[in-house]
């Protein structure tokens, strides 16, 4: 099955709140938003970032701007003031999520 890179359908930005990170994913079109609403689930994003040892992922929707907000618990191994990581604020996650590969449907309309 053909694979589609999320970055070909959307753009994203990430940041921190305490030990959580959020990744806003903005679809490039209404059609892309509708398709991503089906396939870019919280579970899909959670499994993508699982190697980092993250916690629960919640997905919210902002249909007015064709966007999703993924809130990732325990994403920063302690948060900005405490984490030992170079990226203590989760700034890189928004760029990394764009490499997520999705299974393309046979006859995707857009």
């Amino acid at each position: 099955m053909k694979r589609i890179r999320l970055g070909d359908l959307a753009h994203a930005r990430s940041g921190d709140k305490g030990n959580r990170s959020n990744i806003g994913v903005v679809a490039n079109s209404a059609a892309a938003f509708e398709w991503l609403a089906r396939v870019l689930t919280a579970e899909r994003v959670a499994s993508y970032f699982a190697p980092m040892g993250i916690g629960n992922v919640t997905r919210y929707e902002l249909p007015g701007i064709h966007a999703f907000n993924f809130v990732i618990e325990n994403a920063l191994s302690g948060g900005a003031s405490r984490s030992l990581r170079l990226d203590t604020q989760g700034k890189a996650l928004g760029t990394l999520v764009l490499e997520l590969q999705l299974d393309a449907p046979e006859d995707r309309g857009s």
């Binding site: 753009h11 994203a12 903005v26 919210y60 929707e61 701007i65 907000n69």
Partner: peptide, 16 residues
Amino acid sequence: TATVAEQLVYEIDDPA
């Protein structure tokens, strides 16, 4: 609209 949309979703929790 793209640069501003990216900022709307920056460091938010439940958008509702």
